[in-house]
Amino acid sequence: MKVVELASLCGFEVLCMPDGDRQVSGAYIGDLLSWVMGRARADSAWITIMSNVNVIAVASLADVACVILAEGVTLDDELIKTATAKGVNILKSELPAYETATELVGKV
């Protein structure tokens, strides 16, 4: 499934989506950045509550398909610009991480 379809089907808010046609496969939940880099697979959806600039770098380098910020966490405008420039898709969910993940079941 494409990131743009996932966002729509799950009702996630789109903070930025420079590469909405990217395919999502699987998901990983984590806030410790090195765990994410060590364990998250390429092309997965990464669910986190971290919202600093390093999240964008990790998402880009670990090559995940999108970041989903859980618990209503958001990014400031400057970071959204950075993410857009780096081609990182960022979605936002009002739900906690677990409930956010259950929305993905059967879709990615």
């Binding site: 410790l32 090195s34 880099m37 060590g38």
Partner: peptide
């Protein structure tokens, strides 16, 4: 607090 310092840096580099 920034999400670093998990003690996974060098292990990841090796991995």
């Amino acid at each position: 607090s920034l999400g670093f310092g998990a003690g996974m840096g060098l292990p990841n580099m090796k991995r």
